[in-house]
């Protein structure tokens, strides 16, 4: 364990809100507004951390446990991701499965916390969340399995190590896997073709509606966990899409950070130019991700 392994977790913890700020700034630019400052998400979190809390009389300890477990699980998942040449603090055969399943744990607890309030709106959001995630999960794992086969390594650190051996096969595979991971990124992080993070109509939301009754530090934890989760998926996407390494540590990290910013801008562009899909169409989008991932598997298998 050397110190460079801690670079990525610290960067993620520090910069995840900034990424959301960049997304919002991009959307504002498209809409011709000034928009909130890039650092606004930090201020929001800070303010929430210093507030009291209001709990529904219906709720039990599960509502309070949800945000804590989510944040802890997401931070643990971040520890398995390599980033721009820095190795992950935690790396072992099959860590990609733990990575995916930690988000399953997050989902389980957040959905339970939503149902804990007994509100039909939060139940609705929870129902949609589990529906779409059940389809996103095979896409993510198949894409990672294809990359694992290509890199010949069963761990995230190995398969994102950035070696492009046989470009004729590997670049199409990387693109397909990136497409699958990209769709999963949008679906898992309440982004536009699937969910609208800005809407204030409870009927149309998924993630935001699940935390209607969470307040104060709990809301800060849940919000921060969501931001870190977005960072984790974006970092995964960057790992797939930017397989080149210069060999110089700071240059690699800078390159990866630039790519992260590009992903944030990309999310903003998608959100500005696309409409949210009708809910019955979302499974098709996710199936398209599964198809991309399956195609990647087919390509690497031969």
């Amino acid at each position: 364990m050397d110190a460079t392994q801690l670079i990525h977790p610290l960067l993620a913890l520090a910069l995840a809100p900034l990424m959301a700020g960049i997304v919002n700034k991009t959307k504002s630019a498209f809409a011709g507004r000034n928009g909130p400052p890039v650092l606004q998400p930090y201020r929001d979190l800070w303010r929430l951390l210093h507030k009291g809390a209001v709990y529904s009389r219906t709720t039990s300890w599960i509502l309070r446990a949800g945000p804590i477990v989510s944040l802890a699980a997401v931070v643990t998942a971040l520890a398995m991701l390599p980033f721009g040449g820095t190795a992950a603090p935690l790396s072992f055969a099959g860590d990609l499965i733990v990575f995916a399943y930690l988000f399953g744990l997050v989902r389980f607890l957040m959905v339970a916390a939503a149902l804990d309030t007994g509100s039909s709106f939060e139940g609705m959001g929870a129902s949609r969340e589990v529906t779409f995630s059940a389809l996103a999960e095979p896409a993510l794992l198949l894409a990672l399995a294809a990359l694992a086969r290509m890199a010949g390594s069963p761990s995230l650190s190995g398969l994102l190590a950035g070696a492009v051996a046989n470009p004729a096969v590997s670049i199409p595979v990387l693109l397909l896997a990136a497409a699958a991971v990209g769709i999963v990124l949008l679906a898992e992080n309440a982004r536009i073709p699937v969910d609208d993070p800005n809407t204030h109509l409870e009927l149309t939301m998924i993630h935001e509606v699940m935390i209607l009754d969470t307040s104060g530090p709990d809301l800060a934890f849940a919000g921060y966990a969501a931001l870190l989760k977005q960072w984790a998926f974006a970092a995964l996407l960057v790992g797939v899409l930017v397989p080149w390494r210069t060999g110089v540590l700071w240059a690699d990290v800078a390159l990866a950070l630039a790519a992260m910013a590009a992903v944030a801008v990309g999310i903003g562009v998608v959100e500005s130019t696309m409409a949210r899909l009708r809910l019955v169409r979302v499974p098709q989008l996710l199936l398209a991700a599964v198809a991309c991932a399956a195609l990647a598997v087919v390509l690497v298998l031969r």
Binding site: P167, A168, I171, P172, L175, L287, A288, C292, L295
Partner: peptide, 22 residues
């Protein structure tokens, strides 16, 4: 060249999937 052929073939396969899903 092999690379472009592969890319095109993948794209063709994806158009097929789009035909099925649209």
């Amino acid at each position: 060249m092999d690379f472009w052929v592969n890319c095109l073939v993948v794209l063709i396969a994806m158009t097929n999937l789009r035909l099925l899903g649209s």
